[in-house]
Amino acid sequence: MVFDKELDARGLGCPLPILKTKKSLADMASGQVLKIICTDSGSMKDMQAFANQTGNVLLSSTEEKGEYAFLMQKK
């Protein structure tokens, strides 16, 4: 799937993936898509919670071999 920017948050623990996601989205335009990759197993729930509370749209979340990938569309 197409994305405009990628954030590598591998190896980072809570709450860094969320904080870095917030920062990355800050300099993107509305409608653009951020891809986030992380290894924090709590991120599956946290990214959804982040999207629910901020209005950004979590387009997809996938897990493969201990890595979690998310596509977040800026509101």
């Binding site: 809570c14 709450p15 969320i18 904080l19 996601t21 917030k22 982040f50 509370q53 901020t54």
Partner: peptide
């Protein structure tokens, strides 16, 4: 610090 930074990120 974790809760404050996260809450700020959530608006």
């Amino acid at each position: 610090f974790i809760l404050a930074s996260t809450a700020a990120a959530l608006g």
